[in-house]
Amino acid sequence: MNAFLAPLAGGALIGASAALLLLANGRIAGISGIVGGLLGPASRDWAWRVAFLVGLFAGPALFRATTGHWPQIRIDASWPMLVGAGLLVGFGTRLGSGCTSGHGVCGLARLSPRSLVAVATFMAAAIITVFLVRHGLVR
């Protein structure tokens, strides 16, 4: 598929996912929020969160069944780097109340000022981090 068509179509599916969860269940499709709610104190609404995550795990398998191959991925980060990055992503998304999906896909769609600022901030932080690692003095 075209280099831009697959991202656009994949994005549209993600948007449809967010619209479905909103219109059916009244919920934001924010991954860090859905997972974080399971780690909270005595979550009373854990069942739908687990159901969503089971679907999320099954999604790439549906892609495999449809296309005949798994999504190709390449991970360059070292194991210590993966641990550090994971800690930052986990802590940061809870502190900032959202990630690429909650603030990005859902927040931008409903023009939330908090989400606009959050997306601009984490995009800038990520771009600067990649710049320092690849072109800066870090390496």
């Binding site: 599916l13 993600i14 969860l21 159901a51 679907g55 999604g59 790439p60 999504p71």
Partner: peptide, 22 residues
Amino acid sequence: AAFASGLLFGAGLALSGMMDPA
């Protein structure tokens, strides 16, 4: 509905290329 939403999300991620860190 939550399962179907997760399924769409995961399939969309797989199709979009977002799952590939590189």
